[in-house]
Write a protein that binds this DNA or RNA. Structure first.
Length: 258
DNA sequence: ATGGTGGCCCGGCCA
């Protein structure tokens, strides 16, 4: 089963690129972030035509997350907690092909002295609570999306350029590590030891062509899935060409249980 | 050089 994640930076602007990518990458489950659509605007029919079921959680202009699956899509839930502010439409989860899949868009944080920064840390802590409340680390669980955190220094093009900035600060990395400590593996990193493997490049300044990016889009899975993951890829090709997102898709291939 | 690019949707926010 191929499980993918992609921050599309507006699905309205990106639909043709997403259809193209599904056509050649053939994901079984695709987690989308930053659809920037209200639920009523989500193009369910475009995915139905390709053989996929869909579920979307968005309120319009900002954020918005979706699940696209051709291996089933059941027991959909949205948001972090019904009695808590989830800082926008940033989480949707469902059972797809025997896996509890979560598409997440972690708040950006903006800057270390901004009120959105502690809110980002709190969001990550609440995500762990959600997993603890709704899943078991013994079960097949995937948490995929734009975490807005580079887990290690080798996940950014030049860490000296990020001093005092978000995405690399220790509290964010600790919050991500705490989430993983519940029982999740950054399986792409387990398979590849190299640095300079990025999933996001700023639109500005020719960052993509200068290899100035960050690895902030992650597929985190429980060990039962990590052990069956034989291949993973950041598909840089989707960052090229006409009207790309500033993020590119990441996917893993999980073999069937034997 | 305190910008740059792109998406929202048309003045300014957000990434």
């Amino acid at each position: 089963m191929r499980i993918a994640t992609w921050n599309v930076n507006s699905l309205t602007a990106r639909l043709a690129r997403v259809e193209e990518w599904i056509g050649y990458a053939q994901p079984d489950v695709l987690c989308l972030q930053e659809t920037k659509q209200a639920d009523a605007a989500f193009p369910h029919a475009a995915f139905t035509a390709l053989g996929y079921e869909t579920a979307h959680h968005g309120d319009g202009r900002w954020n918005g997350v979706a699940l696209v699956s051709r291996v089933g899509l059941e027991n959909v839930s949205v948001g972090l907690n019904s009695d808590d502010d989830d800082q926008g439409t940033r989480l949707i989860a469902a059972d797809c092909g025997g896996v509890r899949v979560h598409s997440v868009y972690v708040p950006n944080g903006r800057s270390l002295d901004d009120e959105h920064y502690p809110a980002k840390l709190a969001w990550l802590a609440r995500l762990r609570e959600l997993l603890a409340d709704t899943c078991s680390p013994e079960d097949p669980v995937a948490v995929c999306g734009d975490f807005n955190v580079a887990p290690e220094d080798r996940d950014v093009w030049d860490v000296t350029q990020f001093e005092g900035m978000t995405h690399v600060s220790q509290p964010e990395r600790d919050a991500l590590a705490d989430l993983e400590a519940w029982g999740l593996v950054d399986v792409f990193r387990r398979l590849y030891d190299e640095g300079d493997l990025f999933s996001w490049w700023d639109y500005r300044g020719g960052s993509f062509h200068r290899h100035r990016g960050m690895r902030i889009d992650l597929v985190l899975v429980t060990e039962v899935l990590a052990a069956r993951t034989g291949y993973a890829l950041i598909d840089r090709n989707a960052r090229k060409g006409d009207k790309p997102s500033d993020h590119t898709p990441v996917f893993i291939d999980v073999s069937e249980e034997t």
